[in-house]
Every structure is written in C-alpha cells, then in structure tokens.
C-alpha cells in the first residue's frame, strides 16, 4: 500500500510525466468548470428566488463566496506544496505552488471587487472595514508579496524556496490575522449585515450556490494545471523532451 503510494508519488513528481498526463485533465476540467459555472450563474442570477432581506443584491454571493473560498484554499495549498518542495526537494511542487499564486490572487481580487459591489447597495459605501473584506485585502497583499518575491529572485530555484518559506510564515499567520481583524472589527463598530450569515438557505438558492463553488474549484484546478504546464516547459527548456515538444508545436501539429 505504502510502496504503491511512493511509486505513484514518484511518477507524478516527474515534470515530464505530469506534463503528459495533465493535458487531458486540464482540458476536461476546464470544460466541466465552464459548464458548471455557466449553469450555476444562469440559475443563480436569473431563476433563484429573491432574498427576503437583501433583495436582488444577494445574488453576488454566487461569485463572491466561491472566489473568497478559493483564495483561502489556494493559499493553504501553496503552503503545503512549498513544504513538500522544501522537505522532499520536489521541483514539481514548487512549479505548481508558483502558478497557484496568480490564480489565488485573482480569486482574492475578485472577492474584494464583488464585496465592494455588494457593499454599495447594502452598506451604502463601496468600502467598509468589514472583518472579512479586511482580511481578504491582507490576503491579497500576501499573494502580491509571494509573486513579487518570485520575480525579484535572479535564480528561479531560489525564488521557489524563498517563496515557500514566506508562504509558510503566511499560513501560520493567516488564522491570527483573521482572528485579530475580526476582533478589531467587533470592537470598533456594531455588527453589520454579514455575508452568508443566513445558513437556512432555500434549496433553490443552495443548489446553484454549491454548484458555483464546485465550478470555481474545478476552474481553478484547470487554470493552475494549464499555467503549470507552461511553467514546466519554460523551466525544463533545456531537456530533450521539451525540445521535441516545442518542435512538434512549431511544425504545426
């Protein structure tokens, strides 16, 4: 059992194997994600019933909540991948971790923008120092720091390891940041109307909502896979198989 796992792990940790095997995966994941998100959004935005308290403006949760979920999940994934890369010296984990950054940052940005749009009709302002929005802003800054560190390092291998350390520091801090911001927020202002604080959601809302979350997960995976494939080509460009692969492209196949 364990040995089978180790074999499997070794196989998948080879960039070439990953490159070859991920092609159909990124393709099908991408399509599945598109379909599911499209269904969820059409259902959620057009057919789901109006919410009792917030009217139509609640509908932004079909985008806002999935992107907020993903931005946090991806940060955790980056930290785990970084740890795997540091401990087992696994290049592929670093490649995936690096390409998770722009995806996660986009999700954080999307969550912030949709949060602001939701805030306008609900609070009457584009920005409110709401605990969730504030910690999302901090998360976006953490993402930007990771990306900037990668770009500042001369050797990509050093960038990988430096960013892994930073991601580990960040992931230890993230719960503390969230806790402190929530605590700070409750101290400074009375509890405002909060996102998704109404769990007894009606089924006709819940199904498209869960679909949207699933769709965002699949879309992020597909996006990370595609980006990682490019990263592999770039980083392994000296190896024989990448040359062959690129020749195959340039010959127009």
């Amino acid at each position: 059992m364990w040995q089978a796992f180790v074999r499997w792990f070794h196989k998948w940790s080879s960039p070439k194997w990953f490159y070859t095997m991920s092609q159909p995966w990124s393709f099908w994941l991408g399509w599945a994600a598109t379909l599911i998100i499209a269904t969820a959004l059409v259902w959620g935005l057009l057919f789901a019933p109006v919410e009792r308290l917030q009217g139509n403006s609640y509908r932004i949760i079909f985008i806002h909540v999935p992107s907020a979920f993903l931005s946090q999940a991806i940060y955790a994934a980056i930290a785990v991948l970084g740890l795997v890369g540091l401990v087992w010296k696994m290049k592929l984990a670093f490649f995936v971790a690096k390409q998770c950054i722009p995806v996660g940052a986009s999700m954080a940005l999307l969550a912030l923008v949709t949060g602001a749009i939701w805030g306008k009709p609900t609070w009457g302002t584009w920005w409110e120092w709401d605990a969730r929005l504030t910690s999302m802003l901090v998360l976006l800054l953490l993402y930007l720091g990771l990306w900037a560190l990668h770009n500042a390092m001369e050797r990509p291998e050093s960038g990988d390891r430096a960013a892994a350390i930073l991601a580990l520091v960040g992931v230890v801090n993230l719960p503390i940041i969230k806790f402190s911001v929530e605590w700070w927020n409750t101290l400074h202002q009375p509890a405002t109307l909060k996102f998704t604080e109404a769990p007894p959601m009606h089924t006709s809302m819940l199904i498209p909502f869960l679909m949207a979350i699933l769709g965002f997960y699949l879309a992020s995976m597909a996006w990370v896979l595609m980006r990682t494939r490019l990263e592999i080509l770039q980083r392994e460009r000296k190896s024989r198989w990448v040359e062959d692969e690129l020749n195959r492209f340039s010959e127009g196949q």
Binding site: L141, I176, F179
Partner: peptide
C-alpha cells in the same frame, strides 16, 4: 515592506 506588512497586522 510588501512581504512583511501583512504579517504586522495582528
């Protein structure tokens, strides 16, 4: 500054 600022929040 960019790397450390978010960590100083708490």
């Amino acid at each position: 500054t960019l790397l450390i600022m978010p960590l100083f929040v708490p």
